[in-house]
Design a protein around this nucleic acid. Structure first.
Lengths: 178, 178
DNA sequence: AGCATCTAGTAGGACTTCAGAGTAAATCCC
DNA sequence: GGGATTTACTCTGAAGTCCTACTAGATGCT
């Protein structure tokens, strides 16, 4: 989105005011939390994509490359990639199409399962993802825009939400301090 | 996305392990925070869209209708709507096209500015957004999946991030009770 | 007045996401 | 062994986001 002036008033605080005015106090905090997440994601995604732009990568394509580059052989069945990235199988098909077009990955036949297709990162793909990761670490992840004192709280709250939403099974969590 | 089994392990915790293994400790927490936001947004959006499905609305269309329904005349110039919803003007064009197609909004000429177009919510649009809001309040916002004790923290952290990102100007904030 | 510039909105295109439907291979079960 | 079911992937299509480029109207400067 085009760069814009800051709004004179936080639009989410404004929405909360409206919610309360209409007598929906019980839902106001939930609405505010969800709106805040939506907007934060939009801002963070924009930062990430800006950092990836020079490599010709989108976040979706970066994530798949990164996942592949972390595996032993640089290869995964499409379905495994979908599961790990938590996206629809057709999204993976689409992402791999573009990575293939750009020479960053290719499809190989699965050695034993005739139904399955392996996505394999190419040499060029490895190069690109290495550079892109370095850039992201320097320019975005290393300074995400949230004080480090608050990062832990944020991550903990969101992890609880994700777990309760059925994202992943209960972990062998360390005994919680507190 | 299709309903899936919970993953055996939190994929974000897994990514953090990888980051540390590769010696990127400085960026690990930021990466985790950003990944957590992305995934949480995906889950929350899915819940919201599921609740809106029976009204034939997406979140984008709902938000625009809601914004219009809160104005005095149920009308706004396209540009104002874009600014308030913090989306690209072409996204608003697209959203209004669909609302118009479904008879929930229409375009009117701006009374004084020949360049501008007003989006106006129709009677049917008002009906639908009222019902949809009620449903969202009951099924999603009223129980967002985060303990109410943590909602405040979450919202405060994200508001800080949004403000520092230039989302809105410094508010006349109330003296913080810690 | 008249030219330059800015602003509002749209058209077209790239990319991402999901859903439904279809094909091919593997597995289950009698 | 052979049919029924499940699994893996792709195709097509709808929806959303953004970007670039364009048109028309408003504004500003000389």
């Amino acid at each position: 989105m085009a760069r814009r002036e800051p709004l004179p008033m936080d639009p989410i605080a404004e929405a909360k005011r409206q919610w309360i005015e209409h007598g929906w106090e019980d839902a106001a905090d939930g609405m505010v939390a969800i709106a805040s997440i939506m907007r934060t994601q939009q801002l963070m995604l924009a930062r990430v994509e800006a950092a990836l732009k020079e490599f010709g990568l989108s976040f979706a394509r970066y994530e798949l490359l990164r996942l592949l580059s972390f595996t032993r052989d640089g290869a995964l069945p499409m379905a495994s990639a979908s599961a790990r990235l938590q996206v629809h199988p057709t999204s993976t098909t689409n992402t791999v199409d573009r990575l293939e077009r750009d020479g960053l990955a290719r499809r190989d036949a699965h050695p034993t399962d005739g139904r399955a297709t392996l996505v394999v990162v190419t040499e060029r793909g490895r190069d690109v993802v290495t550079q892109a990761t370095q850039r992201l670490n320097e320019h975005v992840f290393g300074d995400p825009g949230i004080p480090s004192g608050e990062l832990g709280q944020l991550v903990r709250i969101l992890a609880g939400f994700r777990r309760r939403s059925g994202d992943f099974a209960d972990p062998p969590s360390p005994p919680e301090p507190l």
